[in-house]
Nucleic acid binder design. Structure first.
Lengths: 143, 143
DNA sequence: GGTCAATATTAGACGAAGTCCAATTGTTAA
DNA sequence: TTAACAATTGGACTTCGTCTAATATTGACC
């Protein structure tokens, strides 16, 4: 994602542009995601937002993230059985997942071509294609 | 996967071939997965195994599935935030996921080419690449 | 067979992630 | 100010999965 500077004002505009009423908590949650351009889980986001002093509840964090998803402001990334990651980057891209550390990094989709995919079943439409490359440190003997 | 017939005897052999001591419960769990060639979740497997009369506990189902995973008898498929699917097909293949119904189907990897992938970071090795095509019924107006 | 050690299984307590609900608070507009 | 709606909240609850400590089963050796 481009090195865009996000502050509370342009985030409020961004929320409005997606049909989301920019409340204090929503702006803080958006700020947590967009200011650092990382993949965060719900509890990480809550920890960031409440770091200085309590600003939001667990229910609001989940409500808000689901609202953001629905309005396509963010995406969810499902690679870890334990938690969902929320991804502020909605441009076409895939992921590399370090199964050891849990670290998730983006792979730009621009250069990637996938050929030989079967046709979609009749009456179905694509929601999207996810590619995840699972990697681990090469240390030690492979088991 | 080939139309292979699995019975309790050759499943016991298959377990042994993967270094797994074939106990009664393990054979039943393997049978649930391999006889129908589907993607099942832990609770579905438990329901199948205990259908006629109680044969195994929740703890054993989870222990056994994790053992099977570790011994690479099966794979896990992470597409649904709520549950893990276990996949008896360990040959190279990808998945199509109907987000509406939760149905998961295999896509043979033989025909598929992916080009333009970035090099792996130094000191990392690939565990594998997952591709998931998310689809939904085309009904109604898209929202 | 019997005995011992190692391996499996189990019930149920526990934990983490996420949802739900009913009560409260905040906002808007007349 | 008040009515109506929207947003937030604490806390109970659900679901999926793990852990633990006790019991049962197995296998190897005599």
């Amino acid at each position: 994602m481009e090195a865009m500077q996000y502050n509370r004002e342009n985030l409020a505009d961004k929320l409005r542009a997606h049909g989301i009423n920019p409340t204090h908590q929503r702006i803080e949650i958006a700020h947590a995601l967009f200011s650092r351009c990382e993949h965060l889980s719900a509890d990480q986001i809550m920890a960031i937002v409440n770091e200085r002093h309590s600003e939001t509840s667990k229910a609001t964090v989940y409500n808000t993230l689901n609202l953001f998803l629905e309005k396509k402001l963010i995406r969810e990334v499902i690679v870890d059985p334990n938690k969902i990651f929320y991804d502020p980057n909605t441009s076409a891209h895939y992921h590399m997942y370090d199964v050891e550390s849990g670290k998730l990094t983006d792979i730009d989709a621009a250069d990637i071509r996938v050929t030989g995919l079967p046709p979609l079943p009749a009456g179905m439409v694509t929601e999207g294609m996810d590619i995840v490359i699972r990697v681990r440190p090469a240390d030690f003997l492979q088991q």
